[in-house]
């Protein structure tokens, strides 16, 4: 075989192996989606959205007559909504402020440190954030509240918001900022009236992606909440959340169809959020 022939042969061989591995890599995800849809649709009905989850004492009852009582995850959906609102209210303003600080003091070593520390918090396992919130807020107060769980989610959301906003800020053309300054505007007002409106779309998309990330967080919620079967709007009471319900149902053998439906619900929720985010601001451009 000639030299060129051998090279082409190796290339085709590697190409074939890579294609094979790609197919191998996709199989589990196809299985995941198929299983989610086939099992999840079973109890994906109106009751699923309008009924609350079974209280712990009903577990034995369920095993006897599974079909006569219908359960849903209404309390989980409401609770997740509440937690996401708390997390957003806390994390988004601080996150935007912090990224503006890093952006405006780029030459300052303090800003570099803030950015560094932000990335360390970003990479922190979420279970640790749950433990810290438990130790710092809930243990002294002797109570597991939705407010503290929301704070835990806010700590997870915060570095994400800083990260995405900063990335968007750094893509703002320098000419735009200089043009504003040349017109006699102060730096803060250029940031407020020129820079922030320019990156508005990216910020909203980042926020949606952050929510998608926070909505599925389970580990910190297991630590900071006791799942309550009722809907609680009081921030100082416990509440429930969809991922927390999935975790609870997993420990009870008779609830498998509810597990699948809740997982499907979460999957669809994240899918919708990501689709909207990609529609608002294409990810390919932002990376």
């Amino acid at each position: 075989m000639t030299h060129t022939g051998r090279r082409t042969f190796t290339y085709l061989l590697v190409y074939g192996i890579i294609c094979l591995l790609v197919i191998l890599a996709i199989i589990p995800f196809i299985s995941l989606v198929v299983e989610l849809i086939s099992h999840g649709l079973e109890s994906f009905n109106l009751d699923f959205f309008t009924q609350t989850s079974p209280p712990p004492t009903d577990t034995l009852l369920m095993r006897n007559d599974q079909d006569s009582i219908s359960f849903g995850i209404k309390n989980g959906i409401y609770g997740s909504f509440l937690l996401i609102v708390i997390a957003t209210v806390i994390a988004v303003p601080i996150g935007i402020g912090c990224s503006l600080y890093i952006f405006m003091n780029r030459s300052n070593p303090v800003a570099k440190w803030v950015n560094y520390i932000n990335s360390v918090i970003y990479g922190m396992p979420s279970v640790l954030i749950g433990i810290i919130v438990y130790l710092a807020i809930e243990k002294p107060m002797h109570d597991l509240t939705s407010l503290s769980a929301g704070i835990a989610l806010a700590i997870i959301l915060l570095p994400f918001i800083v990260f995405t906003t900063l990335k968007a800020l750094l893509r703002v053309p320098n000419e735009l900022i200089r043009a504003g300054l040349a017109l006699g505007a102060t730096y803060p007002s250029v940031v407020w009236k020129v820079v922030l409106p320019t990156i508005k779309k990216t910020m909203i998309a980042g926020w949606l992606r952050g929510i998608a990330r926070v909505a599925g967080e389970t580990a910190p919620l297991i630590i900071t909440l006791i799942g309550s079967p009722a809907i609680n709007w009081n921030l100082l009471h416990s509440t429930n959340a969809v991922p927390l319900l999935i975790w609870d149902f997993l420990n009870k053998p008779s609830f498998s169809s509810l597990v699948w439906s809740s997982a499907l619900f979460l999957f669809l929720f994240v899918l919708i959020l990501c689709t909207i985010a990609n529609y608002i601001d294409d990810e390919k451009l932002s990376t």
Binding site: S31, L32, E35, L36, H39, R209, A212, R213, A215, G216, E217, T218, P243, I246, W247, L250, S256, V259, W260, A263, L266, F267, V270, C274
Partner: peptide, 14 residues
């Protein structure tokens, strides 16, 4: 971006 608990559910049952 799919939450890890969904992978967990799939792993547990499938």
């Amino acid at each position: 971006r799919v939450p890890s608990i969904i992978y967990g559910v799939w792993g547990f049952y499938f």
